[in-house]
Amino acid sequence: MSREHLVNLAVVLALVLLPLAAHLMGETYWVTLATRAAVLALAGVGLNIALGQGGLVSLGHAVFFGIGGYAMGILAYHAQTYTPVIESLGLPGTNLMPLIWLVAAMFAALAALMIGALSLRTSGVYFIMITLAFGQMFYFFALSWPTYGGEDGLSIYVRNRFPGVNTLVPIQFYGVVAAVLLLALLLSDRLARSPFGLALAAARQVPARVAAVGLDPQRLKLVAFVLSAALTGLAGALFADLNRFVSPTMFSWHTSGEIMVFVIIGGVGRLMGPVVGAVVFVLLEHLLGGISEYWQIAFGVLLLLIVLFARGGLIGLIAGREKAHG
């Protein structure tokens, strides 16, 4: 067992045990913080498929996070007002989480297919700028679209249902989120070892050789981008459910930057990187934010130091560089 495996095992145990301990001690607030960290980690696990496995530096993942959020917001809004989503079809809203997740992931994947098909025509710094620009397009669209609250956003009064679970109890909702996160981690790990994942890694490192054996590197990257977006969309739906609120901020490019920051702080391309990164981010936000409202200055300095001096992120620092990729 390598050191990274031990670290991964410790992270999974902490995901299960620490919030449970907080719950038993009656620290509901910490359970909610843990839920926030787990949702953000899920968004990071999504991005890590594109970024870590596919080498795609996407600064537009807020699009998928926001689409997931609005999928939840719109469906739940129509369910709580008993109005149809599409009037002519009489299509009703829903407050059933699995159904909302499915819609969120599907629409995020659809958006990724369109954005990816356009932006994968380019590479490198063009790709970064184009994903950033499309993110901004969705942000402005959400701001100027009055049907679902425009810049005020949309409030949902009751958290959505999951069969057999009382989602209004923090620890039970955390259980749902943590289960989804663990499944996503399993999927991400399986994906990396699958023939597709190996081909994708090769397409990241030497696209010419992948093309030479008859695979299309662009198509591999597009599939990775779409899968990555679907997971981030799912995270967006859960994030909206956690806050019972969606607003255009979810589409803001700062959100894209932050999701990327989780992945990097933890360690890009590492299975548990996004989880460690999201936990550290939420802890810093809580602890530093309690000291000063200008905590982001300190956070910026920390991020700068990690980028300049701790390549491989925190997992890289702990577990060494055996799995670091070029």
């Binding site: 530096v57 200055i297 910026g300 991020l303």
Partner: peptide, 22 residues
């Protein structure tokens, strides 16, 4: 690589923006 550049300059934005707000 571009990823490091994006992150480092994103960190600079946080520092500049919050510093100016302060």
């Amino acid at each position: 690589d571009h990823l490091d550049q994006v992150l480092a300059t994103f960190a600079l934005i946080l520092i500049f923006s919050e510093g100016t707000r302060w």
